[in-house]
Design a protein around this nucleic acid. Structure first.
Length: 424
RNA sequence: GGAGAGAUGCCAGAGUGGUUGAAUGGGACGGUCUCGAAAACCGUUGUGCGGGUAACCGUACCGAGGGUUCGAAUCCCUCUCUCUCCGCCA
């Protein structure tokens, strides 16, 4: 969530920024928060003053009792009664205002960074970089959902049998390719200075709020009713929440973590022909990089993280493009996001394989993730994360682009990880 | 799942209902001493919110939420979590 103080001090800039998202009623939302905050502060002042008064009176009674002046103490005691009611109602009002303030704040998405273009959807995204040449496939080229059947490496029907649609079973070389990719991605991240974390894949409610999946994206996560736990939609949730309520020292920065986890997404209502095969799943594997940075470094870090992701795609010899997302296409929490898309030649489609975002202080404000700067002042840190990488669409790209009459060629860097150079 | 114990500051660990933001010890930081270091000694060592240009002041916080009281870390209730023992188990 945004910091109220910034909302207050930079109202116009914030509204202007939010309008790049094509957010309706940006000004109304912001003003509601500012007004609620004003009432909250007024009410707190009243309550604090009244408390100061009654604290003093209580102390006075104590002194009188000690001095043996019970009569005077009792007189004072009866005089206090009306203040108590007043205090109670003030406190109720205050908690009501705080609650309302929070609800309204949760409704306001992050403010897009300066460089982010205005826009409502994918059409307004800007392609900032392209790499690699489009593979030329023969007329008999198959989309990956045909290839996986042909070579018997990924089985959707078995997944349906034991679980349901969107839960594929990886078999033989298909399974080994998954494992190879995970190891490759983790090794590359480690070389780039990231520390590997293997977190739980179910999280509690507080973690859901910490990274912003709750309250608004509740329906997109699988929920274990019995224990009140959510299956993670991305490793971002557990790995970033490691830093919830944390005060870091300067020496602990920067934080660079990487984690492999399965990811679970209910994706209710978005099922259809355009999401065939591996394009969209309920369970998939992903390696995620997460960084915690000082505010002044975070945009340089965003570039570094993109470079890392681009390096992976280049090593895998996949043609890709890099998009700077427009305001309306970014996630709720993000201030700036780059998407990486791989070209899947048989489908003739670009597939999103990574999303790298700077959340600035939006998450850390909710997480209470701070550090003490050189002047000894506590400051919110910036959080960033990116997929490096999400597996299924990478697999789709490799399968489609590398198909040959006598099998699928494994990218050279993966051969040592796979132990084979061809799926046939 | 059954039985019991507990939750206090960076850590360990006191705490009688009335200046307790909280003893004491350790750690960390600063200083004195020293050529330097150790030891010793002295000092500092919270966070949120509100008010103030500021020094500073007010307020809240001893797992969380309620309650009793003029006054709660201290008494009562509920919840959460942790630990120990037993059972089950990869």
């Amino acid at each position: 969530m945004l910091q109220v103080s910034i909302l207050r001090e930079q109202r116009d800039r914030i509204i202007k920024g939010l309008e790049k998202r094509r957010l309706k009623d940006a000004a109304t939302l912001v003003d509601q928060v500012i007004n609620l905050d004003q009432s909250r502060r007024d009410t707190q002042k009243q309550a604090d003053d009244l408390k100061a008064k009654s604290n003093a009176e209580a102390r006075r009674i104590g002194e009188l009792m000690k001095a043996g002046k019970a009569d005077e103490a009792n007189t004072l005691r009866t005089a206090i009664a009306s203040e108590k009611d007043q205090l109670k109602s003030l406190e109720q009002k205050l908690t009501g205002l705080e609650e309302a303030l929070k609800v309204h704040l949760y409704k306001i998405p992050n403010v897009p960074a300066e460089k982010v273009p205005a826009g409502g959807g994918a059409d307004d995204n800007i392609t900032v970089h392209e790499h690699g040449s489009m593979p030329q496939l023969g007329a008999d080229a198959l989309p990956h959902w045909e290839l996986i059947k042909k070579y018997d490496i990924i089985d959707f029907d078995l997944g349906i049998k034991i679980t349901g649609a969107g839960f594929p079973v990886y078999k033989g070389k298909g399974a080994k390719l998954q494992r190879a990719l995970i190891n490759f991605f983790l090794d590359e991240a480690e070389k780039a200075g990231y520390r590997e974390m293997l977190p739980p894949i179910v999280v509690n409610e507080a973690s859901g709020y910490g990274t912003g999946q709750l309250p608004d994206k509740e329906g997109q996560m699988y929920f274990v009713q019995e224990d009140g736990l959510y299956l993670i939609p991305t490793a971002e949730v557990p790995i970033t929440n490691l830093y919830r309520d944390v005060m870091l020292t300067e020496g602990q920065l920067p934080v660079k973590n990487v984690g492999y986890t399965p990811c679970f997404r209910r994706e209710a209502g978005s099922w259809g022909a355009h999401v065939r095969g591996l394009n969209r799943l309920h369970q998939f594997d992903k390696v995620e990089i997460v960084q915690v940075r000082k505010a002044e470094e975070s945009y340089q870090t965003l570039d570094e993280m993109c470079a890392h992701v681009q390096g992976l795609l280049e090593k895998l010899e996949l043609p890709y493009r890099k998009l700077l997302l427009c305001g309306g296409d970014m996630g709720f929490n993000s201030a700036m996001t780059y998407d990486m898309e791989v070209f899947a030649a048989a489908q003739q489609r670009w597939l999103e394989v990574s999303s790298v975002s700077n959340f600035e202080a939006y998450q850390s404000n909710r997480l209470k993730l701070r550090y003490k700067n050189k002047e000894g002042k506590t400051e919110l840190l910036h959080t960033l994360n990116g997929s490096a990488l999400a597996l299924p669409r990478i697999v789709a790209g490799i399968l489609e682009n590398n198909q040959t009459p006598d099998g699928i060629k494994i990218p050279n860097v993966l051969v040592p990880y796979c132990g084979f150079d061809k799926i046939s």
